[in-house]
Nucleic acid binder design. Sequence first.
DNA 1: TCCTTTCTACTACAACTGTAGTACGACATT
DNA 2: AATGTCGTACTACAGTTGTAGTAGAAAGGA
Lengths: 129, 129
Amino acid sequence: MSKRPDITLSELQIALMRVLWRRGETSTADVAAELAQDRGLKHTTIATLLTRLEKRGVVAQRRDGRQLYYRAMVEEADVRRSMVADLIGALFAGDAQELVAHLVQESEIAPGDLAKVKRRLARGDHDAN
Amino acid sequence: MSKRPDITLSELQIALMRVLWRRGETSTADVAAELAQDRGLKHTTIATLLTRLEKRGVVAQRRDGRQLYYRAMVEEADVRRSMVADLIGALFAGDAQELVAHLVQESEIAPGDLAKVKRRLARGDHDAN
DNA sequence: TCCTTTCTACTACAACTGTAGTACGACATT
DNA sequence: AATGTCGTACTACAGTTGTAGTAGAAAGGA
């Protein structure tokens, strides 16, 4: 029951995945449309990226006629988990509290927001406050 | 006055840097000794890595006789800043609070620890509590 | 049916990374 | 002085990533 896959993706790969996470199964063309828009990438580039992710098992493809549809095979939470863990391991001696301290010190987050996040989670409210 | 350089390093590169951050100027041999120990890397490998980092300007080298001494040209805080920012941008829609929420949800940190971190920082106490 | 558009498959290629071997010069040791 | 040792410089090579071109099949239009 191997849950918790260890996935590390590049920024661009994550951008691809975000489209799939948001829209579910999506055609190459539709993914390309969004990404080409934002980043000026050619659709062949997107196709290549998707093929590679498929080869890695990160996404799965389904063919319908001559078109390919992709869907994510890993959840966003899994990617977050492993990438955050890697970062904490590499840069914060494995101590998550250090990361939080860093966020506050670097003003990425206000001290008061810690309590806010805590309250929000306590309420089981997963949306932004 | 270009502060805040944007540095992204691989796990291994960070491991190299950690040695330099901890010890200050260090000879290739000494860096290699630590890393070869932990990771079974040959000293030529370490030398190559250091040369590359030097080429990138991340470290500087000083020669003494036939030996090279390296020292970090970026601070750990800078690397943390840019890498954490990249991660938040790529995976948490740029919202640091989301990252903290993630840490709590994934039990990387206990809700009560948020307050602890906060108090610690309020006291200006930068050591672990 | 013939031309055009649309997709996918395959190929390419440079940069960066992990990993190390080899060559060569300087030092130390007999 | 001869030799072994150490350290750096240079070369190598495979895997990943970003980026895209080209070829060829298929589908759609005229």
